[in-house]
């Protein structure tokens, strides 16, 4: 099945995944254009890993349609895996293998294996071929995992919380390895991580997911530009009357009214003043981490 937009590499349409009585992913739809980096962020148990595993063809969708590189994942899992690279949160490469053996083993499944790139990455990460996988530190294992995911020149790279538990140095080296490969503009990257500073640094588009549902999907620049927190000082004994449209989260504590909005415009503070008993208004810029927290808190309050 060919995807609709020619430059779309990943296309999810109403994808759902149910495990027994638990719905892990519900009605998830988004597209990732070719050559972009897409970040999927969410709290633990939000359905990120399930979504990424469905993309890899490891888990079948309960409902919906998932196309990767123009191919239906459920009908062409092996063809798609040939063209994808995947770095999981925990890598379970056979512990008895040596680094060289793991590389030789994986090489045999990919006709597009790029030997110079593999050698270059091993050198960059100081990964000796004779080391046993069981003796590698967590950081080294993550790096080996990245080498195995990139050495066959995949068109799509999926990173599923690959830096969890890594020290800052190992994380930096890992990210540098990814960034060096991102220079190739043909490669599409899907990145899931709890380290939102890294996500903000790497991706162009971000999706926030909670309890299997996509809360927002936007380009990183737009999200940071349009999502702002407004701090209003309420008049004595007054409560907010009319929260602005697209309120993500709000909190009233004493006279302080904090409200995070998703479609900030320069005239919004004045509007807020005119429609609510507010004395002073201050606009606060947010980081991706703040935005993420507000989306999740706002959703929890709604529920």
């Amino acid at each position: 099945m060919v995807s609709e937009a020619p430059d779309t590499v990943i296309e999810l349409k109403n994808v759902a995944k149910v495990f027994g009585s638990t719905t892990a992913v519900r009605d998830l739809s988004f597209c990732v254009p070719k050559g972009t980096a897409f970040g999927l962020i969410g709290p633990n148990g939000a359905g990120k890993t399930t979504t990424l595993k469905m993309m890899m063809g490891i888990l079948p969708c309960t409902n919906g349609r998932m196309n990767i590189l123009g191919l239906d994942v459920s009908s062409h899992p092996q063809t798609i895996k040939q063209r994808l690279g995947y770095v999981p949160e925990q890598n379970f490469i056979h512990r008895w293998m040596r680094v060289g053996e793991a590389i030789n083993f994986c090489r045999s499944f990919y006709p597009t294996w790029n030997e110079p790139l593999c050698g270059e990455m091993l050198k960059r990460f100081d990964l000796g071929g004779g080391k046993k996988v069981r003796h590698l530190s967590k950081g080294m294992l993550a790096k080996l995992s990245l080498v195995l995911a990139l050495a066959h020149d995949p068109e799509v790279l999926i990173l599923d919380e690959p830096m969890g538990g890594l020290d800052p140095i190992a994380r930096e080296e890992f990210l540098e390895g990814v960034m060096a490969n991102l220079a190739d503009q043909h490669r599409t990257v899907v990145f899931s991580s709890h380290l939102l500073g890294d996500v903000q640094r790497m991706v162009q588009t971000v999706g926030i997911i909670d309890r299997g549902e996509l809360l927002t999907l936007s380009s990183m620049d737009n999200l940071l530009k349009e999502t702002k927190r407004i701090r209003g000082v309420l008049r004595d004994g007054c409560q907010p009357k009319q929260p602005p449209a697209h309120t993500i989260w709000q909190r009233v504590q004493g006279r302080e009214w904090l409200v995070t909005v998703g479609n900030f415009t320069s005239d919004l503070p004045l509007q807020l003043k005119s429609t609510n008993p507010v004395q002073d208004v201050e606009v606060i810029d947010l980081t991706l981490e703040d935005i993420f927290k507000d989306y999740i808190k706002g959703r929890r309050v709604q529920r």
Binding site: I58, Q78, T79, K81, Q90, F92, I93, H94
Partner: peptide, 14 residues
């Protein structure tokens, strides 16, 4: 048991 089946699942092996 040693979860290496997950590693194999990421590879293009049917």
């Amino acid at each position: 048991y040693d979860r290496s089946a997950e590693f194999l699942a990421y590879l293009p092996i049917s």
